[in-house]
Simulated scan of single mutants.
Amino acid sequence: MVLLLPDGEPESLRTPSPFSYARTLPLGRALARAGRGDGLVVHSVHYACRGWNGADARLAADASWAVEEVTRRYGDVPVCLAGHGLGGRAALQAADHPAVDSVLAMAPWLPDDDGAAELEPVKQLVGRRVLIVHGTNDARTDPELSYRLAERAKKINRNICRFEVHTDGNALRQHHPEVLALATDFVLGSFFPHPYARPVADALAAPPPLGLRMPLAAGFGKSLRH
């Protein structure tokens, strides 16, 4: 089961944006198509509101609720949390549920950790396979913050990697086919007995900073099974 977590806003009580949900559809379709033969199911999580809202961490709470609902409806099935922006932050934070097998965080929105009293948590990522994807020209979510989180997480979980999409922005549109191919390879390789593509396997095995600043090559996926 893959649960798609759309982007949101740092502070808001408004209803979720249909545009944010629409932006997750290409990923959902790509995953559903590639994993159909293996029994992969993809669902979107619909938030109660679009705001993270400080200590309430509403989007992470909604993600945790959705994982619990999956286990109630489907039983003991592994779950991948796949989110963009604040949905990426929710995916990372909600990984503490025992059903969560893997996390895909795309351009995750993270708070500035300079001088922060408490750093963004990473202990919940132990035992999970984690892929972070970030554009180097992202003006909305600082890619350096996702690198620093990945660096801290790598110290307690070797199964984490991070890819940089050079010259791409927050929406990851410039290299969209490659990003979808990377995400699909990671999810199928995490769930099923499919080997990861060589760049993903190398990134997981490499020590920092190499495995956390892996460049996403142009044309990634054209020669893969997807």
Rank of each mutant, 00 (worst) to 15 (best):
Q93G: 11
L86N: 03
M106N: 05
D76Y: 05
Y74M: 07
G115S: 12
T71N: 02
L110G: 12
D96H: 11
P78N: 01
Y74G: 00
A117W: 02
H97C: 10
P98I: 14
D76S: 07
G83H: 03
W109H: 15
E118F: 07
H84G: 09
C80E: 00
L110D: 13
V77D: 02
E68K: 00
D113Y: 06
A95K: 07
A82E: 05
A105W: 01
L81Y: 11
M106E: 15
P108R: 12
V70K: 01
H84C: 10
V103A: 02
G88N: 13
G87Q: 07
G75T: 02
A117G: 09
P111L: 07
V79G: 03
A117K: 08
V79I: 01
P98D: 11
A82V: 05
G115C: 12
A82S: 08
A82T: 04
R89P: 04
A82F: 01
D112E: 08
A95H: 13
L104I: 12
C80Y: 04
A117S: 06
D76P: 05
G75V: 12
P78L: 00
A90T: 13
G83L: 03
D101I: 04
P111S: 09
A105V: 05
A107Y: 10
E69V: 01
A117N: 01
T71H: 05
G88C: 07
D113T: 15
Y74V: 04
A117I: 02
R89Y: 00
H97A: 15
D76M: 11
M106W: 02
A105R: 12
A91Y: 03
T71P: 03
V77Q: 02
A82C: 08
G85W: 06
P98E: 14
E118K: 04
P78W: 00
D96C: 04
M106G: 06
A91C: 04
E69A: 07
H84K: 02
A105T: 07
Q93R: 13
A116F: 04
V103K: 01
E118N: 06
H84N: 10
A90Q: 06
D101L: 15
L104G: 10
D113M: 15
L81N: 08
T71Y: 03
D96A: 10
G87D: 08
A105Y: 01
S102Y: 00
H97G: 10
P111G: 11
A107P: 08
A99N: 11
R89G: 10
V70Q: 09
G87W: 06
V100C: 09
P78Y: 00
A116M: 07
P111K: 05
V100G: 06
E69S: 05
A107C: 14
G83Q: 05
V103G: 01
E118I: 06
H97W: 14
V77A: 03
R89K: 15
V70M: 12
G85S: 15
R89A: 09
P108V: 08
V70S: 02
A82P: 06
T71V: 14
G88D: 09
V77F: 02
D113G: 15
P98C: 13
E68D: 15
G115P: 14
A90Y: 11
Y74H: 12
G115L: 13
Q93S: 12
G83M: 07
A116I: 10
L81C: 04
A116H: 05
A82Q: 06
R73T: 13
T71A: 08
G75M: 09
H84L: 15
E69W: 00
L92F: 14
P78K: 08
V100E: 06
T71R: 14
C80R: 04
P78T: 05
G87Y: 10
W109L: 10
D112G: 10
W109S: 15
